[in-house]
Design a protein around this nucleic acid. Structure first.
Length: 1008
RNA sequence: GGGCGGUUAGCUCAGCUGGUUAGAGCGCCUGCCUUACAAGCAGGAUGUCGGGGGUUCGAGUCCCUCACUGCCCACCA
């Protein structure tokens, strides 16, 4: 911890930890970078593939593998997800886009994952966190296209292959920006397993998945209405479309009957699509129109030259709703999903009248080449001129926008590839959606918070086939070849030489690529090597050693925004493919082992301090790197963790972060205190045993008992017994909270323990026990004094170091940098493990509990607090000591008798008198267990005192009344559990006592 | 149009299966540079738990209803 020099290798820190060379204020910059690099360089969190042992991969062997070696699994740590399963905790990082920059959402996500991974690792599980990045089709393509535009060129003028090369170049140059930012956060991932979704091995897997689904007849190609983004010029899935309410117009347009006998008025929001109308529909029950059914109308564009002069039928279809508009609807099958369905029902032709950029595509017509919105205006004007525009009404409509480009979605009939999610495979079994539903319904996947299970189910039950093709260049190109001779399609794993149908060599590969989510939906098994490379029996070969060891993954941590995009797709594809992969023992895999993960933890959105969604346009985006630079990574991590309560969004607060930086500083200074005293001890020749409880070797020996290191030589002083009890309680609470993903509870518990218990009380008391100059100022009168002092100092310091080291381990998953730094310094260059992250997580059973000490300490704290308050009220100067008088039961007095030195130091008590009678008056206060008076002559502020007492009295009176009402209520007495009744009785008695005392004090106040 | 949340101190939020007198951090007020820490220490003030009704011996907690607010889903021209 020598910060004056150039940073030393963290593996060999300064020889001696000394308070002298520690800066007074904690400066995260001096240490964070160093440790982040150390963790990566030393490969501390890598988990190698288990040795191939055909038949039964043996995870037990992994315990001997350095360096991810952890103490044996203690009892009371994380709950095991599946019984009888290897002791592994596996987690897949939701891959950020290669184009991405770290934002607060990432940081929250990664902080939570890192806390859990570090906790599981320290709890004795082989913990594997797999990182990677996503090629993010559209986003990346856009990024490079923008770059090209700046250079005055374009994707199209470059051509497909040079463009793809260009994107790869971009990826190699900038693609690691986000993972480098991750390293800075201290994410304890296995970097040796880092993947990119377009890596060769993953591309092979994507191809394999596609081909298998095609062979199973679950992928098909067809012409359907899809959501078309005219800017990107590609189809997008339903999920990539957002809806916005806008005020629009409803146009009433007259369509004259072809026979000249009249007309019908239709209502539409999109007059321009009438160019593609092939029918008019009315409801069969609509009496206004039944007579017209079967008649032909002339498309009113007939006045225009260009082949638009056509007659279309009026037909009956349930879709037309009499109440809406005029009750008659024009039908444009190629440009509206509903109209398409009507067209299907009535075998109508589909006329595509817009090109891929949403311009009218009708050569020869006066509208040709116009943008759809320009065309609308012109058509409306023309209709009006022709006297065919009946009305224009305001109309609230919902428009569909492309999430990525913001373009108004144009429903467009086009040839796309789909995944049939509701189809029962030819070979039998369940549909993809059915498996995905069963996996959750049968409890093989658990959602936290559980309400998301409902959301998931709702969506999955109403799911449509998934359009998986995209008209992009960047992505996994669909492994299908079109034959120009017979137009058959050949789908193959390897580039085919000829058409599989007619054997023609005139084949060319499909130009579409796959939806990015198709490849990321496969990740939970493809990252572990699926489909395998061996040439064994194909199905069996799919079980790679990594899959055997790590699939299903334990957990998925993510935001709800990708619940459908990614989570649902992983469940669909995971259950579909993995059901075919045998278990390590050769038995068929069941659904429970086929799921991609056993649990899903869904976290909140990070918003700004005003609860506004962070967005670039609003300019309220909080850059995590900026905040980290300002407050330190640990402080930001701790802030996010402490605010991450399930179900509610996080309003990121800089004030909170500031508070947590103060917490880090507090710990830093507690460490300085510790090192200062270790220095003194060294100079005084006192030897302090460093704690080994958390180290791998000792942990296995002490797993069921109390560490000999902490139990002995442990001071039997009250504060020692108390702090160990608190440590045990805190460990229990933190482990419980983390089991339930209650990061907020866990963080707050540790905060309270470290600051409240350890620093505010324990450290202050321990100062009394540390005495390095036995000849001076000694409270012991005997000649053995020096010896006693040395032994007391030794045990006190040993306990202090032990407790502090445990607290560091407890905090380590939350604040990995700070704790790593101090922990290494504690061992002065000879740490018992390479990292605090490889030590054992504190367990309740690691520390002796002493309930009596807990109660005794509570009374003492109450006394000290009361005396402090009285002193303040009496206006006693801070530095001045004062005598007190106590009245209480024998037990209380007895216990306080041994704590006189503590009272003297913490409450500046110079002398203690015992009073046989109750104490009242303006210098006294009462609690349930004692009365105490500070003996100090000073006039007090009588009105203020009267006000305080009156307030108290009212409070007691109210409480007493409530309690007595309850106690005299027969049904309460008979129905309430006895513990509650007893509790209330005790409380009532105490309140009565306090009431009486307060009343007496009030009466004793001089009148004014 | 369906569905799901939220409403607790000035601010941001806890409060688990209903059970003693509702908590924390920040902010605020008062006094302290007490030799680990002023990014600190000590003391203090602050709530008809959104409104109304109900169930219960007992409701911040369960039910109904209203209000406000946020989000997700949705093919009504």
């Amino acid at each position: 911890m020598n910060h004056e020099d150039t940073p030393k290798s963290p593996a060999q820190p300064a020889d001696e930890a000394s308070a002298n060379n520690l800066p007074k204020a904690y400066d995260p910059h001096l240490i964070e970078q160093r440790w982040a690099e150390y963790w990566v360089r030393e490969r501390l969190f890598d988990v190698p593939t288990p040795a191939t042992d055909p038949g039964t991969p043996h995870l037990g062997e992994m315990w001997d593998m350095e360096p991810n070696r952890v103490p044996s699994r203690p009892t009371g740590g994380p709950r095991e997800a599946g019984k009888g399963r290897a002791n592994a905790f596996t987690l897949l990082l939701p891959p950020p886009n290669v184009t991405g920059r770290l934002h607060m959402g990432h940081m929250l996500n990664q902080t939570e994952m890192d806390i859990l991974t570090r906790w599981h690792r320290m709890s004795g599980q082989t913990s594997l966190w797999v990182p990677g990045t996503d090629h993010a089709g559209i986003a990346t393509q856009m990024m490079v296209e923008r770059q090209l535009a700046a250079e005055g060129t374009s994707r199209k003028s470059l051509g497909r292959e040079p463009f793809e090369e260009r994107v790869w170049e971009w990826k190699h140059q900038y693609g690691s920006a986000i993972t480098n930012q991750m390293r800075r956060l201290g994410a304890s991932v296995d970097w040796s397993r880092e993947y990119f979704t377009m890596d060769d091995r993953l591309s092979v897997a994507v191809k394999e998945a596609f081909v298998r689904l095609y062979e199973q007849d679950l992928i098909y190609r067809g012409s359907y209405i899809v959501n078309w983004d005219p800017i990107q010029q590609t189809a997008v899935s339903d999920l990539e479309v957002t809806h916005e309410d806008r005020l629009g117009k409803l146009y009433h347009i007259r369509y004259p009957f072809a026979d000249g006998t009249g007309s019908i008025v239709v209502a539409t929001t999109r007059p321009e699509t009438m160019l593609g109308d092939t029918a008019v529909a009315v409801n069969p029950t609509d009496a206004r129109y039944t007579a017209f059914i079967g008649k032909l109308v002339t498309l009113p564009m007939s006045a225009v030259e260009g082949g638009l002069d056509r007659e279309i039928p009026i037909l009956a279809d349930e879709w037309a709703q009499p109440e809406f508009g005029t009750g008659a609807v024009k039908v444009t099958p190629a440009h509206d999903p509903n109209d398409f369905a009507i067209g299907q029902r009535h075998a109508l032709p589909s006329l595509t009248i817009l090109d891929t950029s949403a311009h009218i595509d009708l050569p020869g017509s006066p509208y040709h080449g116009l943008d759809r919105f320009e065309a609308r205006e012109k058509i409306v004007a023309d209709l009006e001129a022709a006297g065919l525009l009946v009305a224009i009404k305001d109309h609230n409509l919902t428009i569909a926008l492309s999430q990525r480009s913001g373009a108004v979605i144009e429903p467009r009939l086009s040839l796309q590839w789909f995944l049939a999610v509701n189809k029962i495979p030819a070979a039998g079994g369940n549909s993809i959606a059915q498996n995905a539903i069963a996996a959750v319904r049968e409890g093989h996947i658990k959602f936290t918070p559980s309400m998301y299970e409902k959301t998931y189910m709702e969506w999955m039950h109403n799911i449509h086939d998934w359009c998986i093709s995209r008209q992009l260049w960047w992505g996994h190109r669909i492994p299908a070849w079109h034959c120009s001779s017979c137009s058959a399609i050949t789908v193959a794993r390897d580039i085919p030489a000829a058409c599989a149908t007619c054997n023609s060599a005139n084949i060319s590969q499909e130009t579409d690529v796959l939806d990015t989510w198709f490849s990321s939906g496969l990740l939970p098994f493809t990252v572990f090597g699926w489909p395998g490379t061996s040439n064994l029996e194909p199905q069996l070969s799919n079980l790679t050693p990594d899959l055997a060891a790590f699939y299903p993954t334990s957990l998925l941590v993510t935001g709800f925004d990708i619940l459908f995009f990614w989570v649902a797709r992983m469940i669909m594809l995971g259950t579909h493919f993995m059901l075919d992969v045998p278990m390590p023992d050769g038995s068929p895999r069941k659904l429970t082992e086929a799921v991609p993960f056993r649990e899903v933890y869904i976290h909140a959105l990070v918003r700004d301090a005003n609860r506004e969604k962070m967005s670039k346009t609003k300019g309220n985006v909080v850059d995590p790197i900026e905040i980290i630079t300002k407050y330190g990574t640990d402080a930001v991590r701790f802030t996010l963790a402490s605010m991450a309560s399930p179900g509610t969004d996080i309003a990121f607060s800089e004030a909170r972060t500031e508070g947590n930086r103060a917490f880090a500083n507090k710990i830093w200074n507690a460490a300085r205190f510790l090192f200062m005293n270790l220095d003194r001890a060294r100079q005084a020749g006192i030897e302090v045993t460093l704690p080994t409880l958390g180290t791998p070797d000792l942990a296995s020996e002490t797993r069921d008992g109390v560490s000999p290191n902490l139990a002995s030589p442990t001071s039997d002083a009250l504060e020692s017994r108390w702090i160990l009890t608190r440590l045990s309680q805190t460990s229990a609470a933190v482990n419980n909270s983390l089991s339930d993903y209650r990061f907020d509870e866990a963080a707050n518990t540790i905060y309270q323990f470290f600051w409240g218990d350890l620093c505010d009380w324990y450290l202050e008391i321990v100062k009394l026990r540390l005495n390095f100059e036995p000849t001076n100022d000694l409270p012991f009168p005997t000649s053995d004094a020096a010896e006693v002092a040395v032994s007391q100092t030794t045990t006190a310091l040993t306990t202090l170091v032990g407790v502090f080291e445990s607290a560091l381990r407890l905090l380590s998953p939350f604040m990995p940098f700070l704790t790593e730094e101090i922990w290494h310094a504690l061992y002065a260059g000879l740490p018992p493990a390479k990292s605090i992250a490889l030590t054992r997580y504190p367990q309740a059973g690691d520390y002796p509990r002493d309930e009596a000490a807990y109660v005794e300490m509570f009374t003492l704290q109450e006394l000290i607090t009361t005396v402090r308050a009285l002193r303040k009220e009496l206006g006693i100067p801070e530095k001045e000591s004062a005598p007190i008088s106590i009245h209480g039961d024998a037990k209380t007095l007895d216990s306080l008798q041994f704590s006189q030195d503590i009272l003297a130091r913490l409450a500046r008590v110079s002398r203690i008198e015992v009073s046989a009678i109750a104490l009242t008056g303006n210098n006294a206060r009462s609690t349930a267990s004692f009365d105490v008076a500070v003996l100090y002559e000073r006039t007090i502020d009588i009105p203020a005192e009267r006000e305080r007492l009156t307030k108290d009295l009212a409070k007691y009176e109210k409480g007493l009344a409530a309690a007595e009402r309850q106690l005299s209520n027969d049904s309460f007495m008979t129905k309430a559990p006895s513990a509650i009744v007893e509790g209330l009785r005790t409380q009532a008695a105490e309140t009565r006592l306090l009431y009486d005392k307060t009343k007496a004090a009030l009466d004793a106040l001089p009148a004014q």
